[in-house]
Design a protein around this nucleic acid. Structure first.
Lengths: 158, 158
DNA sequence: TATTGTTATACTCTATAACTATA
DNA sequence: TATAGTTATAGAGTATAACAATA
């Protein structure tokens, strides 16, 4: 998307009620804020997401990480390539099943993950600045229900 | 994104609180529903959006349409190419400024636009099915504020 | 000179198919 | 045979640079 700054202000009336359009532009604004916030660390939002999954799954395989993120295993290859080149992860064959690659954070990787999580939280905060706390809570819950409808009870919101 | 069906159900705990992740997956689910709904018409959601803008701006130029959609003018070229090939739009040089291409809907294009709008509304409806009406209203307003923050008064929501 | 459409090119994100090593 | 990782390739969606026609 072209930046259209300083006029990112232009909700086209005939599209402003279409959810797809709103999702795209809202997501794009969040991405811009997040990229900017993470830039000093040299990782993208997508790469940070990978780091967060690895941090939570300390000896996961590439396939395991990909599956948890909803990505293809071929996509994960270059993602890990890049992170390895940056020095934030290491990979080596699992001794107990040499088909698998175990992926672990380096100590620098742990630091990057910690700092990245904090920076991206700040970016989220400024992204959400136009909303009240109540609306933010509703938004989060709504997004969870819409993204993963079958994983929740249908206790509809108030 | 791989479909991961029937388990699109998998909100990874370490990512489920990240807005970027939720936006991506919610948007992806909406896109899937919309594509499926529009498939009989032979147009994508993106192409329908172009048709809607043209319908609203009956003698717009390619650049005008692109700008209104937040796209680049080079992106619009192939978008219009495809729509012209499908027979839903026509383009010709503006007699009063022959640098511009005027883009208009054909009669088939008007029909496709009308039907597409209805079908994609149905898709939105089933997408939103997990939410109450109240939450849906909050979501729509929140997305508008988040996507185009500077175009609204900062009357924060209740 | 500036603007519109176009072409060529490239980058990101993603997938499918096919290969290799291992099980 | 089946699985994990890899490579090659392709297809959306998008942008930048450069060019032609027109203003």
């Amino acid at each position: 998307m072209p930046d259209n700054s300083p006029e990112r202000l232009v909700p086209v009336p005939e599209l402003a009620d279409r959810l797809g359009y709103l999702f795209k532009h809202a997501h794009s604004r969040l991405s811009d804020l997040t990229s900017a916030a993470l830039a000093p660390l040299g990782v993208s939002g997508r790469q940070l997401a990978v780091l967060l999954v690895i941090a939570e799954e300390p000896s996961g395989s590439q396939l395991g990480i990909a599956t948890r993120m909803g990505l293809d295993r071929t996509t994960m290859v270059t993602l890990i390539d890049d992170l390895e080149r940056k020095g934030v992860v290491e990979r080596f064959p699992d001794p107990s099943d040499r088909r698998r690659n175990v992926v672990v954070l380096t100590s620098q990787g742990r630091k990057t993950t910690r700092q990245g999580a904090a920076l991206s939280e700040q970016a989220e905060k400024s992204f959400l600045e136009p909303l009240s706390e109540g609306d933010t809570a509703v938004l989060r819950r709504a997004l969870r229900l819409l993204a993963f409808p079958s994983s929740f009870r249908t206790r509809s919101a108030t």
